[in-house]
């Protein structure tokens, strides 16, 4: 079931937007090339919002430490984060962003729980 999370106009190229209406929160990214991606917002290493990370070459660098995550797969490249985060299918229809939430278990850092 697809979820409408925001409109494309809410996004800034090269940045992420945190959506905390879903739990755990997700981050929607618009790349400089105009592609839209969606990951879990919380880094797997510590409680940091990936939406505030640095978007470059289809990866987002966690704002706190050096790990980066692939925007399409959630795959992590280097420590300190060791576990990949969940990626969600995102698509744009008529200027609205829809997300198909992953059914996998979320990968959350120590101390963070889904309420």
């Amino acid at each position: 079931m697809s979820l409408r999370v925001c409109s494309i106009d809410d996004l800034t190229p090269g940045e992420g937007l945190r959506i905390d209406a879903v739990s755990p929160p997700i981050a929607v990214f618009l790349t400089e090339d105009g592609e839209v991606y969606c990951l879990d917002d919380t880094c797997s290493h510590q409680d940091a919002s990936l939406a505030s990370g640095w978007v470059e070459d289809c990866r987002v660098e966690c704002p706190l430490h050096e790990s980066t995550f692939h925007l399409a797969t959630g795959q992590v490249d280097q420590p300190p984060a060791k576990r990949s985060v969940r990626a969600h299918q995102a698509q744009v229809l008529d200027g609205e962003v829809y997300v198909e939430l992953s059914t996998a278990e979320p990968v959350l850092p120590p101390g963070v729980r889904v309420p």
């Binding site: 510590q46 409680d47 940091a48 505030s52 640095w54 660098e61 704002p63 706190l64």
Partner: peptide, 26 residues
């Protein structure tokens, strides 16, 4: 890419605002 304090990792955008810190979303 950002200005980060080396003590508890409070992280500031180049434009100055606090963008990240451990547990900031909480």
């Amino acid at each position: 890419k950002k200005l980060q304090c080396g003590y508890h990792a409070w992280t500031y955008a180049l434009e100055g605002e606090l963008v990240a810190a451990p547990n900031l979303t909480a």
